[in-house]
Each structure stands twice: as structure tokens, then as C-alpha cells.
Write a protein that binds this DNA or RNA. Structure first.
Lengths: 215, 215
DNA sequence: CATTGTGAACGGATTCACAGCC
DNA sequence: GGCTGTGAATCCGTTCACAATG
């Protein structure tokens, strides 16, 4: 069986396996052991086996995993076996960069539209991209049954944008706004707060400097 | 004492506390309890107290924490009490967006330069920003003793860029390139792989759909 | 016999419950 | 009395060690 309710830590690693498999398949590698996957990913071999075993027994004892077969299984588990329709709210510089990045590099998702308060910021060179005003949001979401959204709006409007998304059926949100947002139980939010990532990084850049307290 | 070697999970939350404190101080709030901090952050009050206690006893029993005092302590612990000099390698759309974002919104860091293979992509409107060619990297890092870098380069050159950074003394790297990079023990890497974030999000968007296996 | 799949042991982080203190 | 600070209990994820098997 696939898609048991797996721990977050496991789910976070699945796309990594997928990426490695894609690259192995491109190089015509047909069988891969957890040992080698370990070297490619940096996770331990036991952890990889456990992660995969969470969803079923996909390997062959004594041999390893068939790359194409495992890839198919992972696509299905993650939910990438069909293209996922997503929207982007907030088309400032970050929104633009993320949109462009996913349009060109992420074959598994389909950005069906972007939204901004002033869509006269129309000067984008991304082909086939529709830029809507915020008023169109409910209509577009409902028409395509969109479940996934990325938001790159200012912190002070993030909550109201999220409320609007949730009201119209969005169940998973990648939040780049530097603020906590509240959602109902059934909605999943992942915060990708780049300021916070950078600040905690700075902690580690100083790790070994002993700072004497000056007081 | 401050700056003990705290667990990663704790360090990741420190900048969140800092942000809330900044906002409380702007609103002239002088005292805050772990209870209220809990509501603002979404973490439990016990966890917040434990996190802070890791570095010292900053509160007053029966009262709470003094916002300005706690902010000063956190700045010092994280290492933001002096402006941190950082560089950005890769000045494509994402690099540009991240640079702009931090220049305008993150007062604690100072982006002293950006690097790209073809710096003739000079058309940026960010004031005072220096765009260098890759050859300048060692010189600039060494001149300013830069310890922190963000990289937004293509996956296939990420490792060589990282090697160059590490050779010249960088000890903390925020990696947006969609690939695993290898570094020596003393260097800290945080991967901010946006494709992977988005893909694991998709897993959760499907959470409740029961998918019958069609085989 | 190499490699998967997995129960058991371990370790780290969170939650609980309360002692300590203003 | 109210809130911090913290040892103890619990939970969760990782690692270990080995049984299962192509």
C-alpha cells in the first residue's frame, strides 16, 4: 500500500530520492542499492530503507531497487503522477523568480496563474503565464480545483490572502511571507521564511568564536 | 552564559522570537510572558521557556520577559549584534530577488557584493550593490573576512563554487542550488531547495484522498 | 551472499508537572 | 498568585543488528 500517513521527516526526503532517481535513469542505471543512494543523498542507507519501507516493499533482497519502478512508486506516493496545478500569489521580485524557476525547472507542477494587487506589473517574459488581479482568485481556483498555492505577499496581508485561499479550497500553502499564518486543521502550511533561514545560518558561522561576556 | 552549543531545533526558533520582539518593541510593549509569545509564534510556552533557558535565565518569575533586554540577548546569541557581511553567488532571477529582499528587509545583514560568471548582467537598480566576476571572489571574501554566503547557481557548478568559498574561509552557506554539496566538518550548509519544498507540499495537498491501487 | 526489510535499542526534542521566586 | 526555570516522563525519529530472501 502507498500513502500511509508518514512522518514529516520522511516526506521531506522523498523528493530527494526522486531527484536522484531521475538522474540515475538519465544515465541508464537500472538498479540501485540503498548503499549507493546513501552516498548520493547523504542520508544513511538504513534510513533510506526505512523511509521506503514505510510505503511498501519496493526492493529486491540481494539486489537493490529498480530505478524506474521505484521512481513510479515515489511519484505516486508524493502525488506527482499527475501534474499538480498551483497558483502563485504576489508577483513581486521573489514571486517572479519562483514562478520562472518552477516553470522552467519543475516538470511536475503546472503554474496555472499568478495573482497580484496591481497586475499592470505585466512585464513578464514567461510564456503562457496569466497574471490576474486578486478579484479573480476565487474564480480561477474553483475552475481548476487548485489545492496548492505559493504566497510571496507582504506580511501584513498574508493572513487575509491565506483566508481567501482556504475559503476557496486550497489545502497546502508554501508561505514566503515573514509572518505566522493561522489555518484550519485540514490545511498544511510550510513556512519558507528566508530571513529566518539566513539568521539561523549566521549563528553557525560564529560557532567557534568564544565570546566573553562584557559585563 | 550565552552561545552554548544549542540543538538545531532551538537555533531555528531564535530568529522567530527576535522578529516578534522587534514588533512588540515597536508597539511599546515592555514585558511579555511565554504564554503570549506562544500565541504569537505557535510554539508552546514550555518550549519557549526551555529554548531561552538554554542560554541563560532572562526572565523574571511572576512577571515575564523584558522585551528590550531579551532582544539584546537574542541578538548576541544569534550573532546579529554586529552586522554580518555576506555575499551572494549567482545573480540570476532568484539571486536578484533574494539580494533585493535582504537589502531592503533584513537590517541585520550587509550584502557586500554579488558574484556571477557574466557580470555584464549589470542592470540592477539596487543602490550601492557591487556586482563582481567570479575571479574577484577570493579577494573580496578575504578583504572583508566574509563567513556567510548564499548561493543560487546552477546545480552542476554548485560544488565547485562551494569549494572556492570554503577555501577562502566561508563557514556557513545557504544553498539554493538543487543538489547535495559536500563540505568539511567545520562548515555549515543549509539547503533551501525550493523544488523539494514544493514537492513535499504536494504530498500534503492530497492527504485525505484515498487512492485505490489500480493493479 | 549481498542486500532488503524490520523489531529493538538509542538519542534527541517536546511535553508534563511542579519547585522556585518575584 | 503568577510566571519562570527545570528535572522527569514521554514521544518521535534514527541507528543498530539481524532475520528474511532473491
Amino acid at each position: 500500500m502507498s500513502r500511509r500517513n508518514a512522518p514529516k521527516s520522511v516526506v521531506k526526503r522523498l523528493p530527494v530520492y526522486l531527484r536522484i532517481l531521475d538522474s540515475l535513469i538519465r544515465r541508464d542505471v537500472e538498479i540501485i542499492s540503498s548503499r549507493v543512494l546513501s552516498e548520493e543523498t547523504g542520508f544513511t542507507a538504513e534510513q533510506i530503507r526505512k523511509d521506503l519501507a514505510y510505503f511498501g516493499a519496493f526492493g529486491t533482497r540481494g539486489t537493490g531497487y529498480n530505478t524506474s519502478y521505484l521512481r513510479e512508486k515515489l511519484l505516486r506516493i508524493i502525488g506527482l503522477d499527475r501534474q499538480t496545478k498551483i497558483i502563485v500569489v504576489g508577483f513581486g521580485h521573489l514571486g517572479k523568480a519562483l514562478t520562472r524557476y518552477n516553470v522552467s525547472k519543475n516538470p511536475y507542477v503546472d503554474i496555472i496563474g499568478v495573482f497580484d494587487i496591481n497586475p499592470e506589473e505585466l512585464h513578464t517574459d514567461i510564456p503562457d503565464l496569466k497574471i490576474h488581479s486578486m478579484e479573480m482568485l476565487p474564480e480561477v481556483i474553483l475552475a481548476d480545483q487548485v489545492k496548492v498555492a505559493m504566497i510571496t505577499v507582504p506580511a501584513d496581508v498574508a493572513q487575509s490572502v491565506v483566508d481567501l485561499l482556504v475559503d476557496n479550497g486550497v489545502t497546502a500553502i508554501l508561505n514566503f511571507a515573514p509572518t505566522k499564518i493561522n489555518v484550519p486543521e485540514h490545511v498544511y502550511v510550510h513556512n519558507a521564511d528566508l530571513t529566518i533561514e539566513l539568521q539561523s545560518l549566521i549563528y553557525y558561522s560564529l560557532e567557534d568564536e568564544k565570546q566573553p561576556e562584557p559585563e
